[in-house]
Design a protein around this nucleic acid. Structure first.
Length: 113
DNA sequence: AACCTGACTTCGG
DNA sequence: TCCGAAGCCAGGT
């Protein structure tokens, strides 16, 4: 599909364990760099039922966006479980843990180079 | 159809 | 460095 939210879902599924991505980064990978909020919407809407790695998504500041009262601890725990270092304040070193998508060749057909 | 909302992002003070 | 305002996308009311 080429609906924005479907692309977002596809990208979310590609985030590998031990890595994180920012809302904006995901939006950008979905060809809509300004749709960070749409990523939020997608997570709210499909993360649970589609079992998306919502906990691997953080904000551009490199911190967990969830409020302490709603999932902050769970997200931090899940990330730590994947060896991601998250400070007690929810800060993550993007230089180290941000996912660098191995962009696949946009095989329109199977053209080379 | 207008207005509000959300786990955002960027910019200016 | 922290805070506030404005811009963004799309769905929900």
């Amino acid at each position: 599909m080429d609906l924005l939210h479907t692309r977002i879902i596809g990208i979310l599924r590609q985030i590998p364990k031990g890595k994180v991505a920012t809302y904006g980064q995901i939006a950008a990978l979905a060809d809509s760099p300004r749709a960070a909020r749409q990523v939020v919407w997608v997570l709210h809407t499909h993360a649970d039922k589609l079992k998306l790695p919502w906990f691997r998504v953080i904000n551009s500041k490199g911190t967990i966006s969830l409020p302490r009262s709603a999932g902050f601890e769970e997200q931090r725990t899940r990330l730590m479980r994947e060896k991601v270092i998250v400070s007690p304040a929810g800060k993550i070193d993007l230089k180290v843990f941000q996912w660098s998508p191995a962009r696949k060749p946009v095989r329109k057909k199977k053209s080379a180079t």
